[in-house]
C-alpha cells in the first residue's frame, strides 16, 4: 500500500505546473534580487493569462523575466520597469491595475457593495424591531405581574 502511495505522489509531483524560477540570475545586491522577485510575481503573463511571469513557462514570460532582470540590473526602479511594460502591453500586464475612470468600478465596487448590503441589513433589522413589541396597556401590565408573582409563590 505504501508503495502505491509513493508512486501516486511521484506521479503528482512530476505533473506539478508550478516549478518556477527556471533561470539563474546574478544580482549586484539583495535589494535588486528582491525587486526582481516582487516584480515577476506582480507582472502578469499576456500569453498564459492567470499566471504571473514568475510562474509561467511561456517563452514570452521568459523574455519578460529577462527584460525585468536587465532593467533591474541597470538600476531602474520598480515604477520605471512597470511603466515600460504597461506602455507596451497595457494595464493588463500588471496585477495591480492603476486608478483611473475605467477601473473605478474595480477598485470601489466591493466597498460600495459592502456598504449597500450593510444599509439594507440595518434597515431590515430596524423594521423588525419596531414590529416585534406590541405595547400593552396598564391593566394588562398589572395582570402580567400578578401572574408572575403567583407563579413564584408556588415554588
Amino acid at each position: 500500500m505504501a508503495k502505491i502511495y509513493s508512486i501516486f505522489w511521484l506521479v503528482i509531483a512530476s505533473y506539478s505546473p508550478c516549478l518556477s524560477a527556471m533561470e539563474v540570475y546574478q544580482f549586484d545586491s539583495t535589494e535588486q534580487e528582491q525587486q526582481y522577485q516582487r516584480l515577476t510575481r506582480e507582472l502578469r503573463c499576456p500569453k498564459c493569462q492567470n499566471q504571473n511571469i514568475a510562474d509561467s513557462h511561456a517563452p514570452l514570460s521568459k523574455d519578460l523575466r529577462q527584460k525585468v532582470f536587465e532593467m533591474t540590473k541597470a538600476g531602474k526602479n520598480e515604477q520605471e520597469i512597470k511603466q515600460y511594460l504597461v506602455a507596451r502591453y497595457g494595464d493588463f500586464v500588471t496585477y495591480q491595475p492603476p486608478m483611473k475612470p475605467q477601473t473605478w468600478l474595480l477598485w470601489f465596487g466591493p466597498v460600495i457593495l459592502f456598504f449597500g448590503v450593510l444599509v439594507v441589513v440595518i434597515w431590515q433589522i430596524k423594521q423588525k424591531q419596531s414590529q416585534k413589541m406590541p405595547s400593552i396597556d396598564l391593566i394588562q401590565q398589572q395582570r402580567l405581574e400578578d401572574i408572575l408573582d403567583n407563579h413564584e409563590d408556588e415554588h
Binding site: 507596451r88 502591453y89 493588463f92
Partner: peptide, 8 residues
C-alpha cells in the same frame, strides 16, 4: 479574453 487592448 485572449484579445487584449493594444497599448501601442
Amino acid at each position: 479574453s485572449r484579445l487584449l487592448p493594444a497599448a501601442m
